[in-house]
Amino acid sequence: MDPRAEEPLIILLVEDNPAHAELVKRSLEGHPVPNRIIHISDGESALAYLFRRGEFADPEKSPRPHVVLLDLRLPRIDGLEILKEIRTSAEMEKLPVVVLTTSEAEMDAARAYEYHANSFVVKPLDFDRFAKLMDDLGFYWLKWNYYPWA
């Protein structure tokens, strides 16, 4: 188990659509597993956050996430590009990344796995299914998944 079980696990949500970000936040806010969502809305800032550049330089204010929820179509730098950068960096190559996207394009899924996404999930249209997905994702990544470095 996670030794810091009482501390909320940190999710970095990279999502350009504010409404979708709100949907994710609302689904996770009542989640039994304590969590904290850090929302970033464009690709460039996401990389800046992960690599602690510029305004995100302070590790206290910009803690390393346990898991990244990554949208694919993002302004400035696209999600796959971010994934590639994460996987080619020594410090973050093992960071769990869940691609959470509107796209059902096979190409996107194939490429995401090629860059070693840990999971590829398509946002469901239906509200109940969306809520269920976030609930399950929460349990899986916040509760069940074991992080050797946490």
């Binding site: 409404a19 979708h20 949907l23 609302r26 249209l125 509200f127 109940d128 969306f130 809520a131």
Partner: peptide, 10 residues
């Protein structure tokens, strides 16, 4: 559409 259905649910 995801937004509309999601927030209708909420």
């Amino acid at each position: 559409l995801i937004t509309i259905r999601g927030f209708l649910g909420h």
